[in-house]
Amino acid sequence: MAELRDRITTVFQKNVANPLMRLMPFQTLLETTGRKSGEPRRTPLDGSRIGDQFWFVSEFGDKSQYVKNIQANPAVRVRLKGKWHSGTAHLVPDDDPHERLRSLPKFNSFGVRTFGTNLLTIRVDLEG
């Protein structure tokens, strides 16, 4: 059942939600480098900036394409409030993603908790 839910969620995000959200000028975006194509890949998401770090939770963990891209190349960019920031992404499997979600924006956290099946915390260390 979780596998079917994951497939439906992925198809909806890829074909409907993500293309629309990418067009919103102040939507937070994570830009990774495609591990096969070498092309920039932009994923709408939400999280919180704490000092020089940006924290978020992936709903599908290491099954997410952007997580696979991070594993291949951790150099990323994050668009926050319309401005791009370069950084280095780190998977943080020892962090409690449920606890982390309590400190992140409520609307996005609700969606991640509702549809997520393999939660994984990610920290981006932002450059200057």
Rank of each mutant, 00 (worst) to 15 (best):
A2C: 01
E3I: 11
R5P: 02
D6H: 10
D6R: 12
I8K: 07
I8E: 09
T9D: 14
T9A: 15
T10A: 13
V11C: 12
V11W: 15
F12P: 02
Q13R: 14
N15V: 06
N15A: 10
V16W: 13
A17W: 14
A17N: 11
A17R: 12
N18D: 14
P19E: 01
P19Q: 02
L20Q: 11
M21W: 09
R22N: 03
L23I: 13
P25N: 04
Q27K: 06
L30M: 02
G34W: 01
R35S: 03
K36V: 08
S37N: 06
S37G: 02
S37T: 09
G38P: 00
G38S: 00
E39A: 06
E39M: 07
P40F: 00
P40L: 00
R41S: 07
R41E: 10
R41C: 04
R42G: 00
P44A: 00
P44C: 00
L45M: 11
L45T: 03
G47S: 02
S48K: 14
I50M: 06
G51R: 01
D52T: 12
Q53V: 12
F54V: 01
W55M: 06
F56R: 00
F56H: 07
F56I: 02
S58P: 09
S58W: 05
F60Q: 15
F60E: 14
G61W: 04
D62S: 14
D62P: 13
K63Q: 14
S64L: 05
S64G: 04
S64R: 06
S64I: 03
Y66C: 01
N69L: 02
Q71D: 09
Q71V: 06
A72L: 02
N73H: 08
P74F: 04
V76A: 05
R77E: 03
R79Q: 13
L80W: 08
K81I: 12
K81P: 09
K83V: 15
W84A: 03
S86G: 14
S86T: 15
G87Q: 09
T88S: 12
A89D: 05
A89P: 03
L91A: 06
L91R: 08
V92W: 10
P93R: 05
D94G: 12
P97H: 12
H98I: 15
H98N: 15
E99H: 13
R100N: 11
R100W: 14
R100L: 15
L101V: 11
R102N: 14
S103F: 14
S103I: 11
S103V: 13
K106D: 08
S109V: 00
F110S: 01
F110D: 00
G111H: 08
G111V: 05
V112C: 03
R113Q: 07
F115C: 10
G116N: 09
T117I: 09
T117Y: 08
T117L: 05
N118S: 14
N118T: 12
L119A: 06
L119Y: 07
T121F: 10
T121P: 09
V124H: 02
V124A: 02
D125W: 05
L126R: 06
G128Y: 08
